[in-house]
Design a protein around this nucleic acid. Sequence first.
DNA 1: CATGAATGAGCTTTCATTCAT
DNA 2: CATGAATGAAAGCTCATTCAT
Lengths: 207, 207, 207, 207
Amino acid sequence: MPRPTNPKLRRAILDVARRVLIEQGYPALAMRPIAREVGCTATSIYLHFDSKDALIHALIDEGMELLGRELRAALAAGATPRDRLQRLARAYLSFGLENPEYYEIMFMLHPSRMERYPAENYRRARRNLDFFHQELAAALGPAAADRDLRAEATLLWTSLHGTVSLLIAGRIDAAIDRDKLVELAVAQVLRSLSPPPLLPESDAARN
Amino acid sequence: MPRPTNPKLRRAILDVARRVLIEQGYPALAMRPIAREVGCTATSIYLHFDSKDALIHALIDEGMELLGRELRAALAAGATPRDRLQRLARAYLSFGLENPEYYEIMFMLHPSRMERYPAENYRRARRNLDFFHQELAAALGPAAADRDLRAEATLLWTSLHGTVSLLIAGRIDAAIDRDKLVELAVAQVLRSLSPPPLLPESDAARN
Amino acid sequence: MPRPTNPKLRRAILDVARRVLIEQGYPALAMRPIAREVGCTATSIYLHFDSKDALIHALIDEGMELLGRELRAALAAGATPRDRLQRLARAYLSFGLENPEYYEIMFMLHPSRMERYPAENYRRARRNLDFFHQELAAALGPAAADRDLRAEATLLWTSLHGTVSLLIAGRIDAAIDRDKLVELAVAQVLRSLSPPPLLPESDAARN
Amino acid sequence: MPRPTNPKLRRAILDVARRVLIEQGYPALAMRPIAREVGCTATSIYLHFDSKDALIHALIDEGMELLGRELRAALAAGATPRDRLQRLARAYLSFGLENPEYYEIMFMLHPSRMERYPAENYRRARRNLDFFHQELAAALGPAAADRDLRAEATLLWTSLHGTVSLLIAGRIDAAIDRDKLVELAVAQVLRSLSPPPLLPESDAARN
DNA sequence: CATGAATGAGCTTTCATTCAT
DNA sequence: CATGAATGAAAGCTCATTCAT
């Protein structure tokens, strides 16, 4: 389904859609308002995107690639595995906070919208998260032997995601300094390099 | 304006609304589909709730109270601060995973819909998070002196939230064991009791 | 259809309905808002009135009777036919301006609402206008011989109605003094006692 | 936001709306019934009018312009101020009786619906009434010196309005000949050129 | 490559009214 | 004498989408 057409209009549509999304939320992400802001007709959008879902998916793709770029840049700048891990975390947080529109559509959309997201894109997108796994392994070295690094890397990601998404959603108490929270989140990632804590006994009895 | 009315119908409406929300997402949370499933007319819903927003707020309130109950139970069961902290984390994760409909509506709805959530309820809801602060302080004791516990407690919460929300949304790779991830999330909370890691020098140079 | 029931509630309903009518207009004259203000249920209104139309008709009847009372009082106070005519006009204007809710529902409602107004009430209501005819005849005496007094009396009424209704509707330029306009309207009624003007010739040629 | 679009449909909508208004009253002036009669969907109406109010305002504008045209034609045809005044009155009455749908929407709609009528249009509309003032002044000449012509011109208008509106509303006794009433109304306007009557003494004592 | 016109389904909400209690 | 619960219809309006041009 090659769809070259006027690339400028395509860009404009994507940009407006992103802005509307963050400013007014998903329910307001309607074709006609987008068209009005872009300065074309709603019909024109359909020349560039098969459907509203396709438009959203294009935004997701763009966002994933942008994130990938930034994570790779972080990797390249790091001297040691530990340094790279820290940079990865910081880059992830920065990306989310500086591109909330992308972030929201990439990671905060309801699954009912994601179901239609082509599986192949999905897989490609997930690759971004492998960086965490890879650097965690490198940083731990032989100490990684008896740890489930895939799960640990996932945890790093989900933790960062929680911080980003709640900050974006404005759910964090205004008394909390955003930069401070970011620093703590980065530190938490580095903490995961030290050996896991012993769970209290009460826990062993549980479940 | 009497508002108690038939409590069974009220319950049914809330239950269906919760289910629709998780199954089909917010945009599908419409009055008529809910009514159809409940087996009443859309008009009847308005006998029990002033508006769609009021219905959603009622769900949030219910969820917040349920969460509060579970967190308090966890606290009560813990022997030491460290134990209580670990139980709090586990209870939070369990609540989210076992009540995804509540969790989604409580913490994952777009803020544009949340603005009208009455400020007072909001404050009451946030109190649930104070437990983390309180137990963190108790567990650290004098070591808490030069740490920003409010921010650290918030980080605990956001990290747990990230794990819960991505699990709920089905965004976690199927190869990752859900229980394993939960255990790691709990362990991460306990790790926050140890002294913070030294950030690599590369960081000091940054911005 | 005797409908005694609680007369206090009946009164309250009528009073609130009247107020709502003038404050928010006919489209807002809904049963439930009335009930809410009265402090009863919508159902209760139906114990006192068969329908919304019946409620409106009751208001019209009340208004007509009130108007009749005031016109009769004006008549009684007048010494001469000319004086009585002038008092009638003034009383009519005063009634409308002081009871805009009644006036609006009596004379400004769309005919589609009036169709259902029982014919008998209608006739009774119209009797109020006979006063104008009667006093006009008395004031003119023998001079009335070759004039169509029924039509002239009707004109007096329609002219007064125009002034009242536009004042009530707020359609009169704010720069026009309300009292001045009323005085002019009264004077216009008295002017109708003098012989009719000769129409310019151009008129004879018309149509 | 291009708005010319298919002008035939626009016309058809306006025409049907006008007819529905007079036949069934304002509450029946709903988008879907109009659409049904026009033979399009309710949505299509929104291609031509921003809202129901905008549709109504368009009708008012049309009516005001039509009235203006007819009043200006009357003025042009009159030889003397007195003649012109008489023609103005007759033209006003004719307009109302021949275009009851326009007249009703222009002057008989409840103010609560009128508030949103753009102020600028409103002012423009009111200019139609200046013709009465202007010709009254011309006809009276120096005799106008100690009279409030603005108020008197307003009274002419309100009186004519009363006659038109009650005739339109079918509130006039069937025994009254419509043409006769119109002639009397015109005559009443001319009578206003003679000096004002002395009010009876009883009036001086009043209030 | 783009538009204007149109559609049908759906939205939240309010309406007048009824009926068993 | 009055209520709570419910209903079906309809309101104004917006949605994603299509199609002829």
